[in-house]
Each structure stands twice: as C-alpha cells, then as structure tokens.
Design a protein around this nucleic acid. Structure first.
Lengths: 195, 195
DNA sequence: CCTACCGATCGGTAGG
DNA sequence: CCTACCGATCGGTAGG
C-alpha cells in the first residue's frame, strides 16, 4: 500500500510538472491537475496539503539531481577541462530527458513563498559555485584564456538552461549530440569550432 | 488632452511591465497594477479593454524595437561579422536598458490567446531568421568554422536573452561592456578569448 | 478518493 | 477616474 501511494505521488508530480512547464504555476489550477489525472475536484488534497507543495517537490528534486550528477565528477581526479565537459554533459542530459522539470526549475521558483524560496536559491547558488570552481580551475591551468570567471560561468549555465525551450525527444539530436555540440561551441567559439 | 492620455498609457505599461516581469502575468492582478499606479480598483478599464491587452502591447513593442534596431545594420554594407557584432550589441542594449520588457517578451508570451500568440511567434521567427542569415554569412565567408547554423543561432539568442536575469543597472558593467564580453566569449570561446 | 461546500479573489462592467 | 457590483473561478476543507 505504501508503494502504491508512492507510485501515485509520482504520477501526480509528473502531471503537475507538465502543466507547470506549459502554462506556469499561477495559471495552473489544482482542478487542471486533477483533470489530467482523471480524478474529481478536491481529491488531490488527500495527497498534498497545498498546491505549492507540488512546486516545491519538483524544484527540490531537480536541484538534487543536478548536484548528485555533478559531485562524483568533481571529486574525481580528472583534469579540470574534462570535469567541466562531463558536468555539462550530465546537466544537458538532465535538461533533455527531464525537460519539463528543468523548465519548472528555471522559471517557476519565483512562486515559492518564504522560507522555501530562500532555501531554493541557496541550493542553486551552491551548484553555481561548483561550476564556477571548475571554470576557475580551467583558467588557472591555462586551458581557458584570461576571461571573466563569473561571466563565463553564467554563460555556460544559461546555454544549458535554454535547451528545454527547443528540445524535442523525437528530434534528430540525442542528448549526447547536444552536449558535444554545445561544449565545442562554448570552448572553441563560433570562429574556432568546426575547423 | 490626447498627449496626457498617451503619457498615462506609458505609465500604465511601465507599471504592468515591472509586475509581469517580477511575478508573471497570471500572478499579477489588475488590482495589483492599479495599486502600483495609485488608482482605485476598476479604474484601469477606462484605459484598456482586457488585461491581456497590456501584455500584448508590451511584447509587441519589444518585438518592434528588436527588429528596428537590427534592420539598418543588416542593410548596411559592413562585413557579416561586423554586422553580427553590432546586432548583438543592439540586442544587449535593449535587454539591459529595458530588462523588464525583455523578461516579459521572453517568458510571458505563452499567456497570449490566439490569434495574438501566433502573430507574436511569427514576428519572433522573422527576427531569428534575420540573425540566422548573419550567422550563415559568417560561416560562408570563413569567419566562423563549419558549425551547425541553427544551433549556433539559438546559442547566441539564448545568451543574449538570459542577461535580464542577472543584469542590474547599478552594477559595474555598462551595456557596452556586456556586449563586448559576450561577443568575445561567443566568437573566440572560453579557450580562445582573453589571450 | 468523492460530494458538497466555504470565503476570497479574480477579470470585467454599469452608471455616474 | 470612482463606487458598487457581477458571475466565475480559485485554493482548500469537512464528512463520508
């Protein structure tokens, strides 16, 4: 029974994720989610306390996935530029295979009330810091030029977090293709890539 | 009198822009906008017909500004890479000096109903096409490597359209600084820039 | 998980 | 631009 409840919760989160990504949190009513699940109005409240709980679970678990994917790579003893490439590939994979959740993570967190909002921002800041450390290492060992570390980190992040806007699972590029092309363009530039 | 009405309309649009950017269209009530303007509930409807009209005016005029800034540059006889640099600089200037409007343009258009939604998407598509033409020219004249034209165009667009997320007018970088750094990183890459 | 319902708030209107 | 108000929908609850 506990297992069935867990499965049901997954279904609920998946439905909410899709709707929040498509219409936004504020424009999605609890009734919309219940419609998607095929249950009656009000029924959802046997599983959740508030609509915001759903949003929190979605962004919180997305944050966990980003961090969990990056940690082992960063703690390995690969060269910095190889670490960065792999973290980018992992992030791209997350944002393609879980495009709806990535979209909600990137755009809907503003609808969290305090203290969750601050907690979310702290977790996001920690992840950015991990990435920025890798960029710093790549500058210091001479792989990258003498660039603005913060600016470069934000550029990498933005390019990864815009993928969910156009990615379609049935398109011609696999997540690995995308990661490879993106890394190439970011590292070698529009002038240097494809030579 | 007509002039005063026009000025009032500008004030209304500016207030709506800020709130739509901060909270999103759906989470902003007409009463919120009236509060920001200091008028009583219901008063706004002497100036507009629907809340969506405000959103439309904001994204429509943003679209016009992007296109109007790019057109004369593209029609000039500068070399392709110089054209692209200047279009990027113009877009960055628009997204910094009008960060709220850029944010609404990028994220809130989904709340437009048909036929406005389709009209918006058509205008956006036309602008992307202009940019993509410049990228193509840069590939063909050998300035850029043999890269994926569409992918590269989307990368440029995404990097410009994420600026409003972190830009602060009182920060250390001017719009021109940002445009210069961005163009350098995009063109020469993390490895090649700053050498 | 369903039925029936709550108070609050929403976008929008009429009449001045 | 204000006052007073409309029907619809919202998030959430009680009781089964």
């Amino acid at each position: 029974m506990a297992e069935a409840t867990l499965q049901r919760r997954e279904q609920v989160l998946t439905a909410a994720e899709l709707l929040f990504a498509r219409r936004g949190f504020a424009a999605t009513s609890v009734a919309d989610i219940e419609d998607a699940l095929g249950t009656q109005a009000g029924s959802l409240y046997s599983l959740i306390d508030t609509k915001e709980d759903l949003l929190w679970e979605i962004v919180d678990s997305a944050a966990t996935r980003y961090t969990n994917a990056a940690k082992p790579i960063i703690e390995s003893d690969l060269p910095p530029v190889e670490k960065l490439s792999r973290v980018i590939a992992a992030h791209v994979r997350e944002n393609t295979t879980g495009a709806a959740s990535a979209s909600v993570y990137s755009t809907q967190w503003r609808h969290l009330a305090e203290p969750r909002r601050s907690e979310f921002l702290a977790r996001r800041r920690a992840y950015v810091k991990l990435l920025r450390g890798l960029v710093r290492d790549c500058i210091q060992d001479g792989t990258f030029g003498n660039i603005d570390e913060k600016f470069a980190t934000l550029l990498i992040l933005s390019s990864m977090n815009w993928i969910y806007q156009w990615y379609r699972p049935d398109g011609p590029m696999t997540p690995e293709d995308i990661a490879q092309k993106l890394t190439s363009l970011l590292f070698d530039g529009l002038c240097g890539a494809g030579r």
